[in-house]
Design a protein around this nucleic acid. Sequence first.
DNA 1: AATTTCCACAACCGCGAGCCA
DNA 2: ATGGCTCGCGGTTGTGGAAAT
Length: 271
Amino acid sequence: MSSNSKTKINIYECESELRRGPWTLEEDNLLIQYVSSHGEGRWNSLAKFAGLKRTGKSCRLRWLNYLKPDIKRGNFSPHEQLLILELHSKWGNRWSKIAQHLPGRTDNEIKNYWRTRVQKQARQLKVDSNSKKFLEAIRTFWMPRLMEKMEQNSPSTASSPSSSIAAAPSSPAISQLAPPDSLCPNPVNNSNSDGNNYDIFVSSSSPSVNLTAVKNQTEIPIEESYYNVGFPGCYDDMQVQGISPPECHVAEIDWFGEDFWNTDELWQFRK
DNA sequence: AATTTCCACAACCGCGAGCCA
DNA sequence: ATGGCTCGCGGTTGTGGAAAT
């Protein structure tokens, strides 16, 4: 046997020891302990020195998506959902970029949310999730409802008759709440558990939803998106098409479940 | 109660970019 | 210039549990 073949056998044996699939508690502890004392990075050597029979990639993924201390778990808040919709309209499937603006959320989590929740709705409507119709539906139904939900959840404005949120006039229920013009003075605040403040300003000065997200005083301009410039005449278009705006009354919505959308209302978008 | 189907999420894979010797 | 290594990203798959039959 040549030294070459011996090497190959060793590599094979080494690779055959590599574990795959779900992580055990013991593996998690090993990874946590190693990272806490040596820090992140150099994942291949980390895997070796930590005694983990995993690839560096696997260790990195496990740490970033699950074990990292500031990972936030659980359902996405309406505010987070709104951000995802808006940022996706701007950047498309740039999950990691989108995740940068949702503290504590991972790109994998956001990607899964998009595939399981948003694309599911598109499938039910038998439209492409990237189609203009579907984006219209998101802008006209979903986003105003999320904003309304955010409004309901905002303790500072819950008892106030004049809302801090303005939205597209596509939803009468929302537009009734709109202040006269310009940026709202009291942004919807989403103070996350990690301490990051994330505010969304919504302007009613244009016929479309106009969003500005502000994270810790750093403004993230949200412009050039399908939602706020792509369909400036969406509401008018609906009227031209004979779609009556009052049909847009907000139904009882399970924000995290099956009935987020009222499929009957959305059916018209398939036309 | 048993089986099947569906769904959400965790994990894997391939590829490309960046860095460095 | 280039080859190897590491890392990060996005797409895809596998799996466990819930829901339906």
